[in-house]
């Protein structure tokens, strides 16, 4: 893996490649609105440059989990990663779950619908992606494993109880 110093030292490389939800983007490094500034976070690029606003920014400081996306299948905080660091990576955002063509939802999304596992819904995309990473790694988690996995996702309406039920239901339905 490239270190940040490597990336900064090779900043003459004028484009980076991101695969987002299966689609490949060649992004130019620069200061114009459709370019990636070296200071841009991945969350910023996803939202402001690519228009994928399903990824939410809550604290912009790596503490609330709202901006969680999957990078090569692992959950990361997209507000804590510079876009240039994600060069060559494959990103999945909330828009990339399910099948956008036929509207079919991922089983986790469906379980959230069935259990009304949200209130205001601002933290929901981050929670769903964290849950997906958990179930991909551990298809039959216990309730306490679900709670532990989601401990970094802030929810203030207190939808936690329905979320845990939804993730457990999704795990059952995926089997």
């Amino acid at each position: 893996m490239k270190t940040l110093a490597d990336i900064v030292n090779t900043v003459e490389v004028s484009t980076i490649t991101l695969t987002v939800n299966g689609r490949q983007y060649e992004l130019e490094i620069g200061g114009h609105p459709d370019e990636v500034d070296p200071a841009h976070t991945l969350a910023h690029t996803l939202r402001e440059t690519l228009g994928l606003t399903g990824t939410k920014v809550g604290c912009d400081g790596g503490a609330c989990g709202a901006c969680t996306v999957l990078m090569d299948g692992k959950p990361i905080l997209s507000c804590m990663m510079l876009t240039v660091e994600a060069d060559g990576k494959s990103i999945t955002t909330i828009e990339g779950l399910g099948d956008p063509l036929n509207g079919k939802l991922d089983p986790i999304q469906q379980a959230f619908v069935d259990n009304t596992a949200f209130q205001c819904g601002f933290c929901t995309p981050g929670i769903i992606l964290t849950a997906k990473a958990l179930l991909d790694e551990n298809p039959s988690p216990t309730e306490s494993e679900v709670k532990e996995a989601l401990a970094g996702n802030h929810c203030r309406c207190i939808s936690h109880y329905h979320v845990v039920e939804a993730v457990m239901a999704a795990a059952r339905n995926r089997r």
Binding site: L52, T53, G54, T55, T93, I94, E95, L97, G98, L105, Q109, F112, V113, T116, F118, G121, T124, P125, I128
Partner: peptide
């Protein structure tokens, strides 16, 4: 909820 699909798909 009527807005459930919008919420879970972002």
């Amino acid at each position: 909820r009527g807005d459930a699909l919008d919420i879970v798909t972002g």
